[in-house]
């Protein structure tokens, strides 16, 4: 009897560790319920009618930052097919044009892909008020981005955050760029 009782704390500890392991494996991708996210009012009787993030986002390609969804992969792989327009007359533009930036910096060169951006955005979302449509005409600054300007209008708010350095600074300096590559500053 005494030996059984002595084993009890151990048993509890083991049980807790099993629950904890489950938590750890889920921690890879975990979304808070709306009622516990700190901005929804849990007293709202209609809250249960809203879709929970986990229900939608857990089905999409994984990422480690932001919504924990790789949104571009979700779009290109067909996991989602968001509408491009509501008005029938809207001209939907997608352009495939890379611009290489940060040509003189210490960090790797930035390859800016117009395609990935125009799949989501309209030209007018960035041009001409954020960036002039001319390679070499825009002076970019990480400080401005961290303050919500330039790329930081989206990256750090809704698009992958600025802590994901390598996703933009993705092109080694010691290898030649593709023939005819457009270079910015």
């Amino acid at each position: 009897m005494a030996s059984t009782l002595a084993g009890l704390p151990l048993l509890i500890l083991l049980l807790v560790s099993v629950i904890a392991s489950a938590q750890v494996s889920q921690a890879a991708r975990k979304w808070l319920p709306l009622a516990a996210d700190g901005i929804h009012d849990p007293k709202n009787p209609s809250l249960r009618l809203l879709q929970e993030p986990a229900e939608s986002l857990s089905r999409l390609p994984a990422d480690t930052a932001g919504n924990q969804v790789h949104w571009l992969q979700a779009l290109e792989g067909g996991a989602i097919n968001p509408r491009t327009n509501i008005l029938p007359g809207t001209q939907v533009m997608v352009i495939d044009l890379d611009i290489y930036l940060n040509m003189k910096g210490g960090t790797p060169i930035v390859r800016f892909p117009h395609r990935a951006h125009t799949l989501w955005l309209d030209c007018s979302n960035c041009h001409q008020h954020l960036f002039v449509s001319k390679a070499g005409a825009n002076k970019l600054s990480m400080n401005a981005m961290l303050n919500g300007e330039q790329c930081g209008v989206c990256h750090g708010a809704v698009a992958f955050p600025l802590t994901e350095c390598n996703r933009c600074h993705n092109t080694p300096r010691n290898k030649p760029l593709p023939a005819g590559a457009l270079r910015g500053l």
Partner: peptide
């Protein structure tokens, strides 16, 4: 934003 971008591209709300 997450709920809406599953269904609509940014350009719908931010342009149209």
């Amino acid at each position: 934003h997450w709920f809406h971008r599953v269904r609509f591209r940014c350009k719908v709300c931010h342009s149209e």
